[in-house]
Every structure is written in C-alpha cells, then in structure tokens.
Design a protein around this nucleic acid. Structure first.
Lengths: 199, 199
DNA sequence: GTCTATAATCAGATAGAC
DNA sequence: GTCTATCTGATTATAGAC
C-alpha cells in the first residue's frame, strides 16, 4: 500500500540544492514553472533526482514553503524585538520576495488542500505574533487603542504592504506614495525616524 | 513573418464559449490549469479549437482578462453611482470571484510582460475612478479629508478587501471580524445601514 | 469559414542500475 | 545510499481536411 519508492535522506546536500532551486524558479517564473525539469536544470542536477528526494512535486512545494515560513517567523520575531519594532515590522512585511512568494503560495493553495492548511496555520502564527507584539508596543508608547484592537493593526499592515508591493511589481504605483507617506509618518511619530529610535 | 495560421471570427459563438470555459477553469483550478485540453473539455469542444480561435494560450488569457475587467469597470461605475456608493464599492471590492480572478492574473502577470501591462493599465483605471468618486462623496458627506487623500482611501479599500477575501478562501480569518466591523461602522456612519440610505 | 489529424515537446513518476 | 534509463500521458501548436 505505501509507496515502495526509496527517498533520499532529509539532510542530503542535493536535497537542499533542489529546495533552493525550486524557490528560485518559483520566484522568477511562478509556481506553474516549478517542474522537475526546470528545478533540476536550475540546480544543475538530473530531473529524476527531484523524484528521488521528494515523493512528488506537491511535497517539494510544501517543503519550500515550510522552510521559508519558518525563516520568516524567526525574522519577524527578531524585527519585533528590535529597537524600532513597528518600523521593522513594516519593512519586513514589505519585502518584495517575501510578498511574491506568499502570493504564489496563496494562488497555488486555492486548490491544494494540504498546502492550504499549511498556509492557514502559518498565517495564523504570523498574525498572532504580530498582534501580541503590537499590543505590548502600543501600551509602551502610550498609544490609546481601546477601539483599535492590535489584531486590526496587524491585518492593516499585512494588507497594505502586500497590495502595495504586488502592484509595484506590476509597475503600477498610483496612490502608493501618499499611502506609504502616511504609514511612515505615523511610525516616525511613535518610534522616531527609521534608524534613529526615539528612546 | 506573420503567423500564417487562420483565426476564427471574434464574434463566433464558440469563441465566447471558450472564453467562458477558460474563466471557469481559472477560477476553479487556477491559471496553471488553463490548458487547451481542460478549457475544451469544460466547453464541450475539441482542444484544437482553442488554437483556431486564439493564436496561443496567452492571447486566450488576455481576452479573458480584458472581458472581465471591462465588465468590472462598468459594475464599479454603477456601484459608485448608486444610493450608497461607498457601501456599494466596499461590497463590490469584496466579491470573492472578482478577487480570486484578480489574484490569479496578478500571479500570472509577474512574468508575462504583455499581460502585466494590461493589468497595470486596468488597475490604474479602477483606482482613478474610485479616487475621483470618493473625493466627490467625502465632500458631499461633509467628511474632512485635507490630510487623507481620496486615492489613499482607494488603496486602503482595495488592500483590505483583497487580503481579507484571499485569507478567507484559505479558511484563515483571524482579525477579520474586528477589521470588517470597523470599516462597516464607518460606512454606516456616513451612508446609513447597508440597504437603508441616510438621505 | 470551421474544424481535425498529427507532430514535437514537455510533464510526472517508477523500476532498476551502480 | 545515490542516481539514471525509460514509460506513460499531457501540452502546445500546425498543416491540412471538410
């Protein structure tokens, strides 16, 4: 009943090479281009090796996501513990390749139940970490937020950064400067200029 | 030099059937599933007919986008001319299939220059129409907006509705209720409850 | 003007070689 | 434990039949 095919060790060097290659292909050409052949070509390996290290293409994609998402959670934690946490969060959320990969995975997930579950779970962790940190920070800065739950600030940050970065990648920027200016003006008011913390 | 292949008339019945089928496949299975075979199957036609009516798959995709985007612009105009224009805009922007298709096209566009240009052009028209209408409406409602340009309201509306709808399609809704509540509370304040205009 | 038979290429996956 | 030869089917596209 179980797949009789043997699978390469999780820590084998070529496995990592293939994961890196898959991520690069996805970023550069989109998820639809992540075929065993293209990934192998990018990795400088034979296409069949993809099927040696991963039971199927879905598993490869899931591993790419998991690896990157774990890195992201860690980076976000560092950002939220930095001297200007809200600024750092805004900048982290506006990272073009992070946004691009997230969008690829979201589009892809709509019809892959396993991947969708994975995305939903990680999204929840990202938002929860953000909301928890924002709550502490607003209190520390003395910003009233009885009628502005921290989780709403998290949704807002994610929404604005994602859409602005996505649109920018299309070469469409109408309204971006005005929007970003307002976000950054607020950030400066509570945390000082980016790079020179208030306290 | 030019393609010697003959192409079916733009108003032929089967051409429309194929466009409908392509849109449906895209919505249900994602852009990567829009192959001549799947589209033809959905349309109840032979795969080769796709290549008779469209020079290639990219052209088919472009036509699907153009058709839907034109419909969308028209629907948005109607929404913005309705008795509760801001409510109508919010609801229009939160249409799940509209958002899903937009996301598919955005993901797809990252590496198809022709499609990207098309998307950027239409995005600009959507935003401009929104910003222009919002400006008139805020004045009419007596909402001060010296420091809140209408185009920022447009960016905000698009960002929030898109991300919330996308996340919902993943089954991830943390913070949505709180966010939507605040948007709708504001809409109610300026235009009355949805369905019962203030004036 | 509309559609089909068929070529050329590319995909995922596996059994088996080293 | 690592990799390859190879099968099977899908995909785009064209040349040509009705």
């Amino acid at each position: 009943m179980p797949s009789p095919r043997r699978i390469g060790a999780p820590d084998a060097k070529n496995r990592t090479v293939l994961l890196d290659a898959a991520e690069k292909v996805m970023l550069e050409y989109g998820y639809a281009a992540v075929s065993s052949r293209r990934v192998a070509e990018q990795a400088g390996l034979k296409p069949q090796l993809v099927h040696y290290y991963f039971v199927n293409m879905d598993e490869l994609l899931e591993e790419v996501f998991r690896r990157r998402a774990d890195q992201g959670l860690e980076m976000q934690r560092k950002a939220l513990a930095s001297p200007q946490p809200l600024w750092a969060l805004w900048r982290f959320s506006s990272d073009p390749s992070g946004v691009a990969l997230t969008m690829e995975f979201m589009a892809m997930s709509r019809h892959r139940p396993a991947l969708r579950k994975l995305l939903a779970d990680y999204s929840e962790r990202f938002r929860r970490d953000q909301a928890d940190a924002i709550e502490v920070l607003l209190d520390r800065y003395g910003v009233a937020h009885e009628d502005f739950p921290p989780v709403v600030a998290s949704v807002l940050t994610t929404s604005l950064s994602r859409v602005v970065v996505m649109e920018e990648s299309l070469g469409f920027t109408l309204g971006h400067a005005e929007t970003i200016e307002r976000v950054e003006r607020w950030l400066t008011a509570v945390e000082g200029e980016w790079g020179s913390p208030k306290r």
